Simulated assay, not measured.
Amino acid sequence: MEREYLDETLRRLAAEPGFRPAGWGARETADFHRLVQCARAAYVDTDLRNMRVLRIKPDDGLPGKARATLSSGRVIELTFKNSDSHGTVVFELLTPQMEAK
């Protein structure tokens, strides 16, 4: 799947090998890298959703959205966009205020 990032921090974390955002530990950085690698290997969204180790849960019944919880409890929202030729997953870092909505 192709990947897009709504958050500059997540984009840098995925693209820059030595980058670690302030407040992020080594384990949650590794969790995010695993999520990105699995998304890269997936052909369709169900490939990614079915990987239990990623802890991806549906987002309130919205078919094109899901949430992945990192080991620290930080939540990444995933938005899936599929077309006939390929799929894309959009990563967004949720803040506690966004999670409450």
Rank of each mutant, 00 (worst) to 15 (best):
A68G: 03
A41Y: 14
F80A: 03
A66T: 11
I56H: 15
A30G: 12
L94V: 02
R52M: 07
D59S: 07
G64K: 10
S71P: 12
P21V: 02
I76Y: 00
L6D: 15
E2F: 14
T69D: 04
E99N: 08
A68R: 07
E16F: 00
A15E: 14
L48T: 07
G18S: 03
V75L: 04
A22Q: 08
L54S: 07
R74H: 03
A14F: 01
N50Q: 13
T88F: 03
L48V: 05
T79E: 15
E2Q: 11
E2A: 05
E8F: 10
P63R: 14
A30R: 14
I76E: 02
R20G: 02
E77R: 12
G61E: 12
E4A: 09
A68D: 04
F80I: 06
P17A: 00
H33T: 06
A42K: 04
E77I: 00
L94K: 08
I76L: 03
A66E: 13
F19G: 00
S85T: 12
R27S: 13
A30T: 14
I56F: 12
Y43F: 01
R49G: 00
T29W: 03
V89F: 06
A41F: 13
R20W: 00
R34K: 10
K65Y: 15
P21I: 01
R74F: 00
D45L: 00
S85C: 08
D7R: 05
L78H: 05
D7Q: 07
D31T: 08
A26T: 14
L93T: 12
L94Y: 01
M51Q: 13
H33K: 14
M1H: 10
E99S: 13
E77G: 07
K101H: 10
T9A: 12
W24E: 10
D45E: 08
D60H: 14
M1Y: 11
L10T: 15
M1G: 09
T9F: 01
D7V: 07
L54D: 11
N82F: 03
V90Y: 06
A30I: 03
M98I: 08
A14K: 03
A68V: 04
F19Q: 00
R34W: 09
P21K: 01
R27D: 11
V89L: 04
A68T: 03
A100I: 06
Y43P: 01
T9N: 10
A66W: 12
R52D: 15
L78D: 15
S72L: 05
Y43H: 08
A26G: 04
T95G: 12
F32T: 13
K65Q: 13
R49H: 02
M51H: 04
R11G: 07
R52C: 05
P21M: 00
E28I: 02
A66D: 11
L78P: 15
I76G: 04
L6W: 06
